[in-house]
Each structure stands twice: as structure tokens, then as C-alpha cells.
Amino acid sequence: MGMNIVVCVKSTPSSVNVPVDAATGQPKTAGTPTAINPYDEFAVEEAVRLKERIPGSTATVLTLGPDGAADVLREAIARGCDGGVHVSGPEFDGGDSYSTSLALCAALKKLHAEKPLSLVLFGKNTNDGCSGVVGAETAAWLDWPEVSSVKKIEAVDESSVTVHRAMEDGTDVLKLSLPACLATVKEINEPRLPSLKGKMAAKKAVFPKWAAADLGLTAAQVGASGAAAKIVKAAGQPPRPAGLTVAGASAAEKAKKLVDILFERKLI
């Protein structure tokens, strides 16, 4: 019995060390190369591993983003996914996690109606937005069970999946009924590099492109108009105050001075 798996990925700047555009007050990302969000690589790898583990399964990559975002669909196919779907259109610009997850939910429902889905995988967070909540929000819209911080998928059968969740103080094991959403963390696997065969498949791949109307949504529900939060301004990290260097003739003298300072400042 095969299962249909979808992995949600985002095209993000490959370097997040970007300046703020003084004119717009927003990050200056134009010209920065984009790539598959590094945290999504683990989700893609896990989708492909599951597909390989359970004969007859499919792994589909789903992205919401501008035209150029089709590149991350190709990247995921080069790494073993079977096909991709591109949710795109100017109406999606300026979305937050709320409106983005609503659009992802609509796209997943559309896929689910075509052929029933079992699992939807997400990365831990993006390297640009860094919210780490889109998986949980999408699952809430779908009303499907969701677990975040998944570091291992232990067992899967027709109706359930058992996962390990990395918590601050240890590991939880949880069993979800399918269909379900899982947000993965780095520990889950070591992503493979694209294969030659995969690269060939990626080159040839064509993707359906869905606008809001194709998903049964209005332009007002998605992107900036549908957003519930807005980044009004970006700023660099405040500069740290200048530091001091602990000098001394010997290591022992430096150690004494350091400990003196830490006690004086009540840090220890």
C-alpha cells in the first residue's frame, strides 16, 4: 500500500546576511541568490526516504512563491521527489504565516481531492522569516493532527504514524492518525545530494501553477491583504557596546582578573 506524501518548501535567500534598504525599511534581498530553505532539505529527504520505504508511494513538492521559486521544485525533484506544484501569483505577495498557511491548506486540499494524502512534511522554520509556525498553522486550517520538532519517523502504516519529538528536556513519542502534518528538525536525517537521474528529471519537469482563484480563494484572503501581521520595519541588530580585553602577565593573573570582573558585575 503506497502513500501520497507532500513536502512544503520555500525559496529563500541563500545568504541571510543582508542589509536593510534605507528607502523601504525592508531587507534588501534583490540580487541575493535564492535556494531551497536549508531547513526544508531535511523534510525533502524524509519524504523521499518514506517513499522509498513504502512501495507504491509518491512524494510531491509544494511551494508558494514568485516565478523564480520554481527552481526549488526542480531542486527537490533532483533530490528524489516525483513532481511539484507551484502556488504563485502577485496576489500572494507580502503574506504572513496566517495567509500563507491558508493558501497552503487550500493547495493541499486540492491535491487531497485528486488523490488522498497521508502525510505533509515541513521544515522547522525558514532562514528568512524564522517563524517556525507554518506547519502548525496549515494543520490547524486543515484540521489534521500535527507534531512539530520531529526528529524521527518510527513506524508508518495505512492509518497511523509514530514519531519522535525533540523536546527541550528529552524525547516524546507520539502516534498520529493519518492524514497528518509533521514539521521536521535537522536530526531527522542527512540529506543526499541530487543524483544525475534526478537532475535529468528535474530539467524535464513541468509544474501546475495555481493562482488564488484556482484554490477557491479570493485575492483578499491571501498575501498582504489576507495577512494578520505585517513587518513594518526591519533593523540591524543593535551594536554591542565595546568590549575589554583582560590583560595579565600570566594565565593565573588573567583568570583572577576575569573572575573578579564576573563577580563585580554579579554575573556569577
Binding site: V16, C130, A228, A229, K230, K233, A234, G236, Q237
Partner: peptide, 15 residues
């Protein structure tokens, strides 16, 4: 923080 801690976002709620 966003952009992996490189930038600080000022967020306004519309809801």
C-alpha cells in the same frame, strides 16, 4: 529577530 538573527523585525498586528 528574523533573517536568522541578522535583522530585527518590527511587527504590527492587523487582526
Amino acid at each position: 529577530p528574523y533573517f536568522s538573527g541578522n535583522l530585527i523585525a518590527s511587527v504590527e498586528f492587523k487582526s
